[in-house]
Amino acid sequence: MCITEAKKTAEREWLSEVFCIPLQQSIQDLGTAYSNFFKSCRGERKGPKIKPPRFKKKANQQSARYRRGGFSIKAAKVSLAKIGYIKTKWSRPLPSEPSSVTVIKDTAGRYFVSFVIEIEPEINPAQNESIGIDLGLKTFAVLSTGTKVNLACLLARESSPLRAVEDVKQSSDNPSETRQQPETMKQDRPPPDSPSDH
């Protein structure tokens, strides 16, 4: 309603030259911004405090969002309502039909087109299967694969000669005592003669 009334004024009659969908999206974005601002003031919104919305400047980035019905794509060309076909240099093919398109003009005067699409999530199979372990009294552990681990096998491994050799090797690699070499004192000259009695 506010857009229709604004078009009737002399200051806003240029709004009639713009398609209605981008104007409606701007009103919705403004309502969302004020809603988030008031929720932030009341403490109902998590995160840092939000400042109130501000008017956009012409020197800053500009954007217009079109929903379905306001744009179309034919033969790799994008057509916008009340504008027509625009020259498009695609960075990648679209995997599915877009639900909306946003035309962005940056501060350098360049135009970009951004699409919103829906794709099915890809579910990759697990590379490493998980294994459940059940600890018991008679059997030390039973794996979900059916493998049983007995405590006697673990004790036998700890007391095996190979284990003893490994322990000796580890202790030899890391000796706990360090050798200290004695320091030798050198005399550069003999001690002075003691004074004689005259």
Rank of each mutant, 00 (worst) to 15 (best):
95 P>G: 06
45 R>V: 06
111 Y>H: 10
77 K>F: 06
92 R>Y: 03
74 K>Y: 13
76 A>H: 15
67 R>K: 11
99 S>F: 12
58 K>Y: 14
79 S>G: 01
105 K>V: 10
109 G>P: 05
93 P>F: 04
57 K>P: 09
86 I>K: 01
65 R>Y: 02
83 I>L: 08
118 E>T: 01
67 R>P: 01
37 F>Y: 07
42 R>W: 12
95 P>V: 03
93 P>N: 07
115 F>T: 04
94 L>F: 08
107 T>Y: 12
60 N>M: 13
116 V>E: 08
55 F>A: 06
57 K>W: 15
93 P>L: 00
34 Y>C: 13
112 F>M: 13
40 S>M: 11
85 Y>I: 04
99 S>A: 15
110 R>W: 07
56 K>P: 09
118 E>N: 07
82 K>Y: 08
75 A>S: 12
85 Y>W: 09
118 E>K: 02
81 A>L: 07
51 K>I: 08
111 Y>I: 13
44 E>F: 14
68 R>S: 11
106 D>Y: 01
81 A>Q: 10
60 N>V: 09
103 V>H: 02
103 V>A: 05
68 R>W: 14
50 I>T: 03
67 R>D: 06
104 I>E: 00
66 Y>N: 04
100 S>F: 02
46 K>W: 02
99 S>E: 14
97 E>F: 06
47 G>R: 04
46 K>L: 12
69 G>A: 08
52 P>W: 04
86 I>V: 13
87 K>H: 12
110 R>N: 12
38 F>A: 04
88 T>A: 09
95 P>F: 01
60 N>S: 15
40 S>W: 11
42 R>D: 15
45 R>K: 13
43 G>F: 09
51 K>L: 15
40 S>T: 05
50 I>V: 11
42 R>P: 08
84 G>K: 00
115 F>Q: 10
40 S>I: 00
79 S>K: 00
72 S>L: 05
78 V>M: 00
41 C>D: 04
53 P>Y: 00
78 V>G: 08
82 K>Q: 09
67 R>F: 01
92 R>P: 05
52 P>A: 14
56 K>S: 11
51 K>H: 07
70 G>M: 03
115 F>P: 00
36 N>L: 10
58 K>N: 13
77 K>L: 12
76 A>W: 08
47 G>K: 06
84 G>A: 07
107 T>H: 08
102 T>S: 09
65 R>I: 02
47 G>C: 02
81 A>C: 09
49 K>T: 07
114 S>N: 08
46 K>E: 13
97 E>R: 03
109 G>W: 05
74 K>W: 10
77 K>E: 07
54 R>Q: 05
102 T>E: 10
90 W>D: 01
35 S>K: 15
97 E>Y: 02
105 K>P: 03
63 S>E: 05
36 N>G: 11
71 F>Y: 06
52 P>G: 05
109 G>L: 01
65 R>F: 02
103 V>E: 01
111 Y>S: 07
35 S>P: 06
84 G>Q: 01
78 V>H: 05
34 Y>H: 13
40 S>L: 01
41 C>T: 15
37 F>V: 03
50 I>R: 00
78 V>E: 04
112 F>K: 05
71 F>I: 11
98 P>S: 05
98 P>M: 01
53 P>Q: 00
103 V>K: 07
54 R>M: 12
78 V>A: 02
117 I>G: 02
84 G>L: 04
75 A>W: 11
44 E>C: 14
117 I>W: 03
